[in-house]
Every structure is written in structure tokens, then in C-alpha cells.
Amino acid sequence: MVWAAATLTFIAVQLSPGETINTLLGPNSNDPVLRAQVIQDWGLDHPAVVQYLLYFGRLLRGDMGVSYIEHRPVSELLADQFPATIELTLWAAGLAVVLAVALAILTSRPARLGRAVSQFLELAVVSAPPFWIGMLLLAVFSFRLGLFPVAGTGGVRAVVLPALAVGLPIGCFLAQILREGLDRALEQPFALTAQARGMGLGAVKLVHALRHAALPALTVGGLAVGNLLGGAVICEQVFGRAGLGQLAVNAINSKDIPIILAIALLAAIVFVVITTLLDLVYLLVDPRLRGQSQWQEANA
């Protein structure tokens, strides 16, 4: 799958209009000396198939090439930018999960009024463009109240607002799914039984129903977190943060093929890792899946 992603990206880049050499040279693209030099430097005189084979040959040896534009090894650029992205992703994901669980538990039935208010706010946040949420957070918490720095470097304090900007919409979205799951679980006989045993409604939700509701939310949430890796561009821009998103956008704009391919590879790897992790978490959450083989036998 990882290989397929990289190959598709390679083909897409080759098919997109314009020659790489022109982008590389920018305004000086008619300078014949420079043109020859750059074509030779980057092996652009080879046919696309040869470029492809050369690229994968190098990749197998762990060499991702050198950025056309930035003149730095791609591995170094990724190593530079990845930690910032991971940091933001983890904070945002953590925040989204806490928010989703809290909202879902507090506003699943029978809380009628809270539910209506919460649903309205969730819809508003999910529909709002993320950069606008980011600007709003900055305006209030950084510019006006001075609680957080505007940009990049101040450790944990600097990550709070970007994590909110990215995590809020995901959290609200997950809350909607989770609440629906909770509602459905609470209709099941086991919920009534548990309450009949004298268990409080809150405890029923937390101990029993949440587990049932978690499966669809996990699936959606996992994919959302995967998306974060590339989707945080706007947030990076608003908050002046380092990160992969900005790197990817710049690379695509300037046809910086080594970086585009490396990021496609990385994204594919991340998705593989996340789906694998999800499979494992499903097993933890849902005991029925653990006994699947037995269950199948029983059905046979």
C-alpha cells in the first residue's frame, strides 16, 4: 500500500502540467547554462520511467533525495518538521477525545436542554473554517488576554491554541457520533438491567454504554488524526508553526518532487500504522471481536 501511494503520487506529479525544470529555475528559466546544469544535477533528462526506477532504487537504500528548492536532504527536512506535527497532532487528538467523551456523556439522554445547546455549538464549530477558529482563539486568548504566545516556540504554552484550533472541530464531530452511539446503547436491555441493579445512569454510561458507542467513533477518529498530519497547514500558517503541512504545500506549489514523494510515503505509512493500531484497539474495546473465531464456529 505504501509503495502504491508513492507510485500514484509519482505518476500524478509527472502528469501535472508544466516541466519541473521551469519551476526549478523560476524567473531564470531561459538561462541556457543554468538550465543545462540543473537538468544534469537532477537527472531530468532521463525518461519518467528511469527517473521512477532511480528514485525507488535510492529509496530502498534509505536515500530520499535532496529538495530541489531548499537544497537540503529530504530526510533532514522531514526529521526537522515531523516532531512539530506529531506534537500538534497528539495534543489535538488528546483534546478531541477528552472533549468528545465529556460532551457525549454529559449530553446524551436524558439531558434535553444541554443536548440541544451542545448540538448547536458542535455544528457551529464543525462548520466553521479552522483558520477562523484559529484567528478567533488568537484574538481572544493571545492578543487580548495575553495568556498564550502567538507563535511557535514557547513549549507547552505555545501549543495550546493551535491544538484547540485543530482539536475542537474533531472533538465536536466525534462527540456527535459518540452521543448517538451512547443513546443507542442506553436503549439496549443491558442498560436497563444495570440500572435495575442500582447502578447510577452516569456509571452505566461510563462503564457499559461508552464501550459500545466507542467503535464507530474510533474508526472516524483514527482517520481524522491521520488527516491531521497533512491537514494542519492552515493552522501552521496562522500560528507561525513549523510542520509538515507547510512543507507539503510549498513543495506542491514548486513541484519539489523529492519532498512531495516523501510526504506521500510518510502519509501512507502513518495510515497503515493508525489502521493497525485501530484494529488492536477494537480488540481491547470489544470482547466479541476477540472471540470471533469461536463465534464463527458456533455459527457454522
Binding site: 483558520f131 484567528m135 488568537l138 484574538a139 493571545s142 492578543f143 487580548r144 495575553g146 504566545p149 502567538v150 507563535a151 511557535g152 500558517q237 496562522v238 500560528f239 507561525g240 507547510q246
Partner: peptide, 17 residues
């Protein structure tokens, strides 16, 4: 500081950052 977004720059100056 590299602040690509114009409103972030103006906000950062207004806030004295």
C-alpha cells in the same frame, strides 16, 4: 519570526509580542 498570516502579524504587534 516567520508569521505568514497577515492578521497574525498585526495581532502580534498590537499585543506587543
Amino acid at each position: 519570526r516567520f508569521l505568514a498570516e497577515a492578521s497574525t502579524r498585526t495581532g502580534a504587534l498590537a499585543a506587543g509580542q
